[in-house]
Amino acid sequence: MAKLLEIRDLHVRIAGGREILRGVDLDVGAGEVHAIMGPNGAGKSTLSCILAGRPGYEVTRGSVLYQGRDLLALSPDERAREGIFLAFQYPVEIPGVNNTYFLRAALNAQRRHRGEKELDATQFLKEVKARLKLLDIGEDLLSRAVNVGFSGGEKKRNEIFQMVMLAPKLALLDETDSGLDIDALRIVSNGVNRLRDPSRGIVMITHYQRLLDYVAPDRVHVLSEGRIVASGDSRLAGELERRGYAHLGSAA
């Protein structure tokens, strides 16, 4: 059976600009949790952007298969409906678009795509309320505009809340842990752990070891200067914490 995600020799540059990813290879299987670590500017966020389909990047070489299909041929909304979820590093504030309305539109778009019945307002609200509790998010979130006036921590929790609601097949978390205090980190981690499932892949992009104390990864990769320069099990993260990235970067 095809892997959930197969990245081969991926080269990506900023549209009309410099090359950021310079030959990335990565496989993510169903049921696996991967952590991608690396110094600033290594290309970690570019990797998540290219997988989610953010405009402004160009693939110059290589391929990305998602469940055996060419991911790069799909539009961002098709990718999401096919089960890819990106938890944004900087969630966007959208004034005037109500959170509930937005999330229901998203969920129903995905349900329609899978040939499932759309949820009506009552069913949806029931689902939502159960999960809000789980993530310790107040119900006032439902009446607010998407991320407007949210603190940094609330925005990140809202990302995880959406992720839990949409139940993706492949979740990409782009520095979801940055800017979180210890309580928020625990809540976010609980959300991620809840999603661990034999049918689901999770890729966490992070600077720090501390998220990995709460969500134990199956694999840890180090991205440096646009390439994965080291891979290992969760012990690699601890080693990086002690020794830093420098010795790995030169090894590449």
Binding site: R54, A80, V92, V97, V146
Partner: peptide, 12 residues
């Protein structure tokens, strides 16, 4: 904002 909505599966 547009990309954020698309990234949640809402068509363009």
């Amino acid at each position: 904002s547009l990309f954020y909505l698309l990234a949640r599966g809402i068509d363009e």
